[in-house]
Simulated scan of single mutants.
Amino acid sequence: MTNNFPQALTIAGTDSGGGAGIAADFKTMQERGVFATMVVVAVTAQNTLGVQDALPMPPKLIDEQCASLAADLKIRACKTGMLADPTRVTAVVKNLQKYDFGPVTVDPVMIAKGGAKLLSDDAIATVRDQLLPLASLVTPNLPEAEELAGMKIQTEADMITVGKLLQGMGVKNVLVKGGHFASADEANDFVLLENGHNFWLTAKRIPTHNTHGTGDTISACITAELAKGKSMEEAIRIGKVYVEATIKDGINVGHGHGPLNHWAQIGGDQDEI
Rank of each mutant, 00 (worst) to 15 (best):
G168P: 14
L69F: 07
L118I: 01
K177F: 14
Q154C: 09
V43N: 08
I22Q: 02
Q270D: 10
L193W: 05
T202G: 11
I222H: 00
A149E: 11
M232T: 12
D85L: 13
G115D: 09
I153E: 05
F190I: 01
G115W: 08
C66Y: 07
A42F: 07
N195I: 12
M169I: 04
A54R: 04
Q97E: 10
M57S: 05
L193C: 13
G258Y: 07
R128F: 08
G19W: 07
A77V: 04
L131I: 07
T10I: 12
M1R: 13
M1Y: 10
N210C: 01
K113P: 00
G21R: 09
V162M: 07
C66M: 08
G115Q: 11
K74I: 02
S16F: 02
K113H: 09
G268Q: 06
G268L: 04
G13C: 05
K164F: 06
G258L: 05
I222E: 00
D53T: 03
V89D: 03
D15Q: 09
D271P: 07
P259Q: 09
M169H: 02
T126H: 01
A23M: 15
I153W: 15
T126P: 09
G33C: 12
S183P: 12
T48V: 08
D216M: 03
T87K: 10
P56G: 03
W263N: 13
E31M: 08
E233N: 11
V127I: 13
N47S: 03
A224Y: 09
M57K: 12
N4C: 14
G239R: 01
S136R: 10
D85V: 14
A123K: 03
A77Q: 03
F190H: 11
F181P: 14
G17S: 11
I206A: 01
K230M: 07
